[in-house]
Design a protein around this nucleic acid. Structure first.
Lengths: 316, 316
DNA sequence: CTAGCTTCATAACGATCTGTTATATTGAAT
DNA sequence: ATTCAATATAACAGATCGTTATGAAGCTAG
């Protein structure tokens, strides 16, 4: 006996409210529709669902049991509707983001947490990579957003990118680093200390090479490499080493008072931190909400970072 | 956003099986029907449910979540169908029986247990009463079956009754009763012992009065009354008292070896144990199954009881 | 016990939806 | 590139839904 799910729901509404009229009202239907459904159900099942000729309508045991199942369906249906609704306004769903390790660790993870304060049912899947991988992942629909530095000249093919922070590198060291004691540290001093290399493949690594060579280094003394941001910071904490970092990453650590930037201006790359999306494929609303959240978050940060940059690096 | 439950089920079937064609087959539908449903759903929801241009079909997060809800509905629907099916063959439901206390306690309760060995999902609601109450309860649809002794002449108005055991009373006593030692106990001896009266309102009570008066008692020595069958038996166990009982009730206690019947023939009432049903109103299949089970059970018992009666009462 | 009110059942009808078969399109594998 | 399998689309007949209008049936109050 195949039963129409809609019929069970109507039965449930009637049993729940105790009357055909009220049950119909609960579902937003006219009374005769529900009445007919019940008659049809009884005829098709061949068993009475209600005790005839009693006026507070009283279900038979079978009617009651079936109504319970209908109630499950009603609830499930409601939940499904709610799910769709919340998905459409970006309150549920999955956001798959990829980005360069330092930015993700230093800035984005925290933003994710803040985002979910208002979007608790949105799951965020994070992965790491650099621009070429991230672009490929975007195009293969493995991620929805990429957050990474890109060369400003780059024109995405099928990709939309919003710049959220200008590229600006600094030399990072621990707050007790001896170079910080000098009134005017010279670039040549930088070669006196061991260096930490950013992860292989990162734009930072290229920046570091260019920087050191421009300062007259013949060979580059790399003492440590391969670590994630936390490794690098923990290493920096324990030695007078130096490394190149995006200023925003150092900025994000300012509260910890463990690392800071040397007041030495170094050439900033022709690069900017950006959010990349596919322009063609449809994105889940939650993805757009998250992208917007990140954009606004950085908008707020931008002038803070700027001021910090001026005070720390140029000692304003 | 109101979603049709049927659509969710179809979505669930497709996601579960991994293909539109197979999903349709699972539901016994043609492929285009399901395909159209999915298109319609996506259009109405405004979000993709499947990642386009990928084969094997891969659901989006939203599609997956909705499919889970659909799966709940599918399962619930199946359960509802099974429930109806089992109800129709009498394998589930409720049977409300009423009957005279002694019969219910001594014979029917055990039959209920045996019945449920093959019908575990049938609930049995038992209540007590005598013929007038039971007939009223039947007509008011408070019980489905009555099991009680009725006068053979009685013609049920709107009630069907099947005789399942001829009425036959015996004098019951404990197995150590002194009267059992006599070769041929005389009716007059019965007056030498205290009597237990059956519950007020029971036919047995009338039988007892008639019996004792017919044996020449001027007044009836009632020592104990008002107890249920267990009370009566426990009383009998502890005293040389006597009482009148249906023979079948004494028979049911034979294994306990605590009470037995005196080998004295007493007039048997023009009455028979019967099952009463409404003839007009529809009965749940489980009710008919149970009634048939009881009838067959007594059919098996009948000759056993007969033989027991002959051997115990007439000492054959 | 009747009057009146409320609730349920039935009828008729238009609109929608369902499921079907036939056919075109598309993705994937060889 | 070709071929095969799976999905999407089209067209159509029938079922079903929900509606309004109306009749029947219980409860309740006087």
């Amino acid at each position: 006996m195949k039963l129409d799910e809609r019929h069970l729901i109507q039965l449930a509404a009637v049993v729940k409210t105790g009357g055909v009229t009220e049950g119909a009202a609960l579902l937003g239907l006219a009374q005769p529709a529900v009445s007919r459904t019940l008659s049809m159900l009884e005829k098709r099942i061949g068993e009475p669902l209600f005790i005839k000729g009693r006026r507070p309508l009283q279900p038979t045991p079978l009617g009651l049991s079936l109504a319970e199942h209908g109630l499950v369906m009603l609830a499930t249906s409601r939940k499904a509707s709610d799910l769709v609704e919340s998905f459409r306004v970006g309150k549920s769903g999955v956001v798959r983001i990829g980005g360069t390790p330092f930015f993700m660790d230093a800035l984005i993870a925290q933003l994710c947490a803040e985002f979910q304060a208002s979007h608790p049912d949105v799951r965020i899947d994070q992965s790491y990579g650099y621009f070429p991988d991230l672009r490929a992942a975007l195009k293969a629909d493995q991620i929805d957003l990429a957050i990474c530095p890109i060369d400003i000249l780059d024109e995405g093919s099928g990709l939309e990118f919003q710049q959220i922070l200008p590229g600006r590198n600094v030399v990072a060291c621990r707050v007790t680093h001896p170079l910080l004691l000098k009134r005017r540290p010279q670039p040549s001093h930088l070669l006196d200390y061991p260096w930490i290399a950013p992860p292989p493949g990162s734009p930072l690594l290229a920046d570091l090479r260019a920087l050191l060579l421009s300062f007259g280094a013949t060979e580059i003394k790399i003492r440590y490499t391969g670590g994630s941001l936390m490794s690098v910071i923990n290493y920096l904490k324990s030695a007078d080493a130096l490394t190149v970092m995006p200023h925003s990453v150092v900025f994000a650590q300012r509260k910890e008072k463990t690392i800071t930037a040397l007041p030495i201006t170094i050439p900033h790359p022709e690069r900017a931190l950006a959010i990349l999306k596919r322009i063609d494929a449809p994105r889940a609303p939650a993805v757009d909400q998250f992208a917007e959240f990140v954009r606004l978050g950085f908008q707020d940060l931008r002038h803070l970072i700027k001021r910090h940059e001026e005070s720390v690096i140029w000692g304003v």
